[in-house]
Write a protein that binds this DNA or RNA. Structure first.
Length: 157
DNA sequence: GCCAACGTTGGC
DNA sequence: GCCAACGTTGGC
């Protein structure tokens, strides 16, 4: 089992929308490192922090789960989509996505500052200078700590 | 709104 | 294959 963090801007797609939708496809990732992780490493059942970026304060809102492994991001082939990429074709879709479903909302959000202030989270990718990846791995230890900071007893099932 | 950090593009 | 120019991300 692997653990992850995925960033979303709440004014584009907030956690509450995922809860309402019951599941969503994670479209629009246009970064190769992030794509490779979605394509090669994210597995069914892996847990994901749903992180709200570009928000005051930026924070982890809840825990989600991978419910479908990597497949082509069809928005890349849709000329009407803002994520359209003319280099994407059915033979070579270029970009990939996964589906996620909500598992548990944090009892209280965990802000970026709180995470920075917790020495036990040293080394977490999110906290590193210049870290911009919208999909990133999280260690089990860090995952558990942030869950507890969010008021969950443990990593949710 | 600013800007540092980083990724991508394209000319050479 | 280098690297300057440019675009984007995202915290502040």
């Amino acid at each position: 089992m692997n653990y992850w963090l995925m960033k979303s801007e709440p004014h584009v797609y907030p956690w509450e929308m995922l809860v309402k939708d019951k599941k969503t496809h994670w479209d629009g990732v246009r970064n190769y490192q992030a794509r490779n992780m979605m394509r090669d490493e994210m597995k069914l059942g892996d847990l994901v922090f749903f992180y709200h970026s570009n928000f005051k304060p930026p924070h982890v809102a809840g825990v989600a789960r991978i419910c479908r492994e990597g497949y082509p991001d069809f928005t890349a082939q849709d000329p009407d989509s803002k994520y359209f990429d003319e280099k994407a074709t059915p033979e070579n879709p270029r970009w990939m996505m996964v589906d996620i479903e909500p598992v548990k909302q944090m009892e209280n959000i965990v802000s970026l500052q709180e995470m920075r202030d917790n020495p036990a989270l040293d080394g977490m990718k999110l906290l590193m200078k210049g870290s911009r990846l919208s999909v990133q791995p999280v260690t089990k230890k860090h995952f558990e700590i942030v869950c507890k900071m969010g008021g969950l007893n443990n990593i949710p099932e």
